[in-house]
Design a protein around this nucleic acid. Sequence first.
DNA 1: CTCCAAAAACTAGCGGTGCTAGGAACGAGT
DNA 2: ACTCGTTCCTAGCACCGCTAGTTTTTGGAG
Lengths: 200, 200
Amino acid sequence: MSIQTRKERERAEREKLIITAARDLAEAEGWEAVTTRRLADQVEYSQPVLYSHFKGKDAIVTAVALEGITEMAADLRAARLSAPGPDAVLPAICAAYVAFAEQRPALYDAMFRQRVDLPFATPEAPPALQEAFGEFLEAVRPHAHGTDLGLLAETLWAALHGLATLMRGGRIPREFHDQRLAILVARFTGEASDGTARPA
Amino acid sequence: MSIQTRKERERAEREKLIITAARDLAEAEGWEAVTTRRLADQVEYSQPVLYSHFKGKDAIVTAVALEGITEMAADLRAARLSAPGPDAVLPAICAAYVAFAEQRPALYDAMFRQRVDLPFATPEAPPALQEAFGEFLEAVRPHAHGTDLGLLAETLWAALHGLATLMRGGRIPREFHDQRLAILVARFTGEASDGTARPA
DNA sequence: CTCCAAAAACTAGCGGTGCTAGGAACGAGT
DNA sequence: ACTCGTTCCTAGCACCGCTAGTTTTTGGAG
């Protein structure tokens, strides 16, 4: 049994190595730079080894996305726990979400932009994803006023996703990002929208 | 002068043909099916002629995106004009926007997801894009309450973009899309969020 | 220690991609 | 009719994801 477990361990370590290499390369040069050849070179194995671990390149992206989901869930949870009160949760979650998207763009791309084979918004979805969504549920709960919590959370999530992706894609200027985020938060908390004029 | 103009006309016609072929192919089979070889085959010319019209494949996508922007601007304008009153403009614009994204997914991808070399959110942006954004400005005007119009419009735009792209990417179920859109609209019009519970 | 079968990893290659260099064919002006 | 510049095509480059077939390594039996 010892030999068998050693092999399995080594195999698991190598798999982790592949995922990390893919992630690092994507974060450094973007997903378009992540090719199976470069990946194989990085882990110092030949290309076909990758396919003994993953069905294809998409599966590698999926594995990276799963890592990202776990980390995002932790970020959102930390943001909620450090919020001073229930009403402060939503702004904190929103800020943490867009910060994650900004700071780990490749990870975020894998999670929410690339084609991956992961179940979303179903009971079969990854636990970490459900956990992350749960944080959004808690965030919107004080401001639901009878609206379905799940739908409200999905809508807020989508709005943040739009802000993050449009900004990253250059469709919306980086300038005044904080103000836009504040506007969105105000619209979802129901508080009077802050009348701060565009400072430019 | 006649020969010269004839050549220019034929050249313009062929360019239009390339753009249309790219667009049709993308709408039919997705952008990943749009290759320079298939495109060249479609217009019955060899590959290199594409490069005498466009700097590269990205430029072709950009040209398609420009077409899409023009059509979207027309859709949004029509939606605004057919709205019964100022307060009905925002819901109409929102509905028209997501409908466009749903019905012309490839066009929408070219406009807002793919890497294209177009100026956004600057005075140099394509007129049609500024026109489309102008429709959003009009839509949010009655509900701004002192918030900067431009930032508010961008934020709403981003929220709709998030809804459209997450749904298309399978991250949010198609079910209850109308409710989510209603929630978003309610949050931006400032009216009491409709308490319609999730019918499931 | 030797041998052999099985497991593991490699080399080489397939069909595809975006893009381009170099030569052939065409057509307008003399 | 003959240049000669323009236009277009053939062929090919370097790369992509992926896989078939072969070589190497490895662990256990004799």
